[in-house]
Simulated assay, not measured.
Amino acid sequence: MAKNKDSIQYVFTVAFAVCMVCAIVVATSAVVLRPLQVENKALDLKRNILASAGLMEEGKSVQELFASIETRLVNISDGQFSTDFDVDSFDAIKAVSDPKLTDPLDNATDIADIKRREKYAEVYIVRGANGDIEKVVLPIRGYGLWSTLWGFIALEKDFNTVAGLGFYSHAETPGLGGEVDNPKWKAQWPGKRILNEAGNLAIEVTKGGQADADSPYEVDGLSGATITTRGVDNLVQFWLGDNGFKPFLDHLKTGGA
């Protein structure tokens, strides 16, 4: 007997079959594409590390350029290179949300508004032909207006001069706080100094339009994005300060890391 295509049972049966087919297709696609997504994410991270250090070159692939970069694990508290974990399998992003691998921050210390600071971080070393460190790239993060900004700051071999800065993930307002991605704004950073002659942290992101163009320490903030500007200033101050990578940089300067 022919089925009644107008019956509720038939409609539900067809709808259920369509849903099952779609679910299978979506699930299969997710499983199949997952390795590619992971690979693309890792490639994008490498690209941002290279870009922050000014190492991108026309005609060369990201993988080719990154092959010359040495990835090391650092214990942030004591500023020493660490072998507590295998750096090739260490997941720095997951470590940020692992209570066992982070320490809580009090309100006075937590100027970057990150709540907890990881105990270990991956840093990226660029060496010259003689084996000496030419640049070091440090991971940075902190809260802006709407989101946590994740990025890198690269330093020259004196460990006091900025080689570049860039963010690879954030959700700041396009045209305002989102201007942290503007090449013109990022172009202010190379050449700026972290510490003044007295050895005190002096680098600063000012309000938009208020930076002294002749100052080796001041970076002009983002016009119309006061909170994001303050967030960037705070995260830079935190990660280059005593509770961030200052112990590590001090060790590098003396060859003790």
Rank of each mutant, 00 (worst) to 15 (best):
A92N: 12
A67S: 14
L145H: 12
I76H: 00
K100H: 10
F66P: 01
K157F: 06
G151K: 06
R127L: 03
R141G: 03
S61W: 05
F159L: 06
T71N: 04
R117K: 14
K119A: 01
D110W: 08
K94Q: 13
E134I: 00
T83A: 15
K115N: 07
V137M: 12
V62H: 02
P99L: 05
A67N: 11
Y120T: 01
W146L: 10
I111G: 07
D103C: 07
D106A: 07
A95R: 09
Q63V: 00
S82N: 07
F90E: 01
L73R: 12
L145A: 04
A108G: 10
D113K: 14
I125E: 08
N130Q: 13
D91K: 08
V137I: 15
I153V: 15
F159W: 06
I140P: 04
D110T: 05
G151F: 07
F152C: 05
F85E: 07
F152M: 10
A129T: 13
D113T: 08
T83I: 09
D86W: 04
D98L: 09
F152H: 09
A108W: 03
R116V: 11
P99M: 06
K119Q: 10
G128C: 03
A95V: 14
L105N: 05
D113N: 12
Q63S: 11
T148F: 14
Y143W: 04
E134R: 12
G131S: 02
L101V: 12
K100E: 13
I140M: 13
L101P: 08
A121H: 00
D98S: 10
N107Q: 09
F152V: 02
F81T: 06
D84V: 07
K60A: 07
L101Q: 15
A154D: 09
R127D: 02
V74Q: 10
L65P: 08
A121Y: 02
I69W: 05
V74D: 02
